[in-house]
Structures are given as structure tokens and as C-alpha cells.
């Protein structure tokens, strides 16, 4: 597997904010979200990112009723950020 080929997107899911409604799972086009097997602090099975395959489309974010349960990140591609990343890599 090519470790350098990164996904275009990445998900962060706040396990304490998620209420496990499952709308993000339904909404996700590449189907990379699932319900956790374990219950969280409040007794919900929460949404969990499969860890790979996110395109960063952001659809799950707007399907989710909670303000910050989901954060969608996208791979940085603009030159300045790339340069910064290079710099960080060399440091």
C-alpha cells in the first residue's frame, strides 16, 4: 500500500457530542462512517470514521444535527501550505 497517497478528506468525530442518530452514515457518499460497537458516556453508539476513504465532501457535516460532533478536514493543496509542510518535514 502506498503510504504517501493520502485521502482527500479526514473526519473527526466528537464521541461525547454524537447522539448516534446515524444520519451521517446514511449521507456519506463513500460510506466510510459506521456506528461504534461500544456505548459512549451517555449510552449512545456513536458515529465512527472507518479511518480511510473520506473525500472531504462535507455532506456528513450538514446532515448531522449537532453543532460540532463532526469536523471535516480536507487535504491542503495550495502552494504556501505545501511549502510550509515541506518546511515542517525538513525541520
Amino acid at each position: 500500500m502506498d503510504a504517501k497517497k493520502r485521502d482527500r478528506g479526514l473526519l473527526r468525530i466528537d464521541q461525547d457530542e454524537c447522539k448516534g442518530c446515524g444520519l451521517c452514515i446514511e449521507a456519506c457518499p463513500p460510506k466510510v462512517i459506521a456506528l461504534s460497537a461500544e456505548l459512549n458516556h451517555y449510552g449512545y453508539r456513536t458515529a465512527t470514521y472507518a479511518g480511510a476513504g473520506c473525500t472531504g465532501c462535507g455532506i456528513c457535516f450538514m446532515a448531522c444535527p449537532e453543532p460540532g460532533a463532526i469536523t471535516v478536514l480536507r487535504a491542503v493543496s495550495h502552494p504556501a501550505a505545501m511549502a510550509a509542510r515541506e518546511g515542517a518535514a525538513h525541520a
Binding site: 478528506g9 479526514l10 461525547d16 457530542e17 449537532e66 460540532g68 478536514l73 491542503v76
Partner: peptide
């Protein structure tokens, strides 16, 4: 990995950071 990503969709500025509605559950509606 995290260095390579930036937030595209996240919690809106127009929401309070914490909801002082109850002692608990200040992060959810």
C-alpha cells in the same frame, strides 16, 4: 497526517463554545 489537513467544515463561530443550559451536556444541544 494532521499537518496535511485543514478544517473544511466545523462548528460555526455563531454557536457558543459551550451551552450553559445545564451543568452537564454543555457541548450538545
Amino acid at each position: 497526517t494532521a499537518l496535511d489537513y485543514e478544517v473544511a467544515q466545523g462548528r460555526a463561530q455563531s454557536f457558543y463554545a459551550r451551552f450553559e443550559r445545564k451543568d452537564e451536556l454543555q457541548h450538545q444541544t
